[in-house]
């Protein structure tokens, strides 16, 4: 728990640094990149002694269940796929939104708190050989849906 609070504060400061300090209110690229970089390296450490995943579905399951639980302290509430490379992860109490009020004004700020995670997931998948696009939507705080689209060339 004590490390969690430290991380949450760091995350909040990273958000401020990337968006406000550089006057880039709507440019989430730096935030996404910090997440990407973290995810890429973290997954390397987590999987280096593990057998390779047998296919995309197994990789996705690993990221959306084990990896998610380790980082976000809870299991995702729902994981769905259309079997055509589109995965939707639903978290009804997303870690970085649980201390924020549910109002309309707060909802405007919600995107700030999901982009690091979009990058984190994309980075982890990239390292495991899957090229993807990750987006998130917040309709009601603290719930969040992440859409992971596998880019097949």
């Amino acid at each position: 728990m004590s490390e969690d609070i430290l991380f949450d504060f760091l995350h909040a400061e990273i958000v401020n640094y990337c968006l406000h300090d550089n006057n880039k209110e709507n440019d989430f690229s730096a935030l996404e990149y910090i997440g990407f970089n973290t995810g890429y390296r973290l997954i390397e450490r987590l999987t280096r002694d593990a057998p390779r995943f047998k296919d995309e579905l197994e990789t996705m399951k690993f990221i959306c269940t084990d990896f998610w639980t380790l980082i976000y302290k809870k299991q995702v509430d729902n994981l769905r796929t259309n079997n055509h490379g589109m995965y939707v992860v639903q978290d009804k109490a997303f870690r970085f939104l649980t201390r924020i009020s549910t109002g309309a004004k707060q909802l405007e700020h919600a995107p700030k708190f999901v982009f690091f995670t979009c990058g984190l997931v994309r980075g982890a998948l990239t390292n495991l050989g899957i090229n993807s696009t990750v987006t998130a939507e917040v309709q009601t705080i603290p719930a969040c849906k992440f859409h992971i689209e596998i880019n097949r060339n």
Partner: peptide
């Protein structure tokens, strides 16, 4: 601590307006 200090939308030193709190 849980709902003010840990609310990323609250700035230290400002009155608390959070409905969650």
């Amino acid at each position: 601590v849980e709902y003010v200090v840990r609310d990323p939308l609250w700035s230290p030193g400002t009155p608390v307006t959070s409905e969650l709190f």
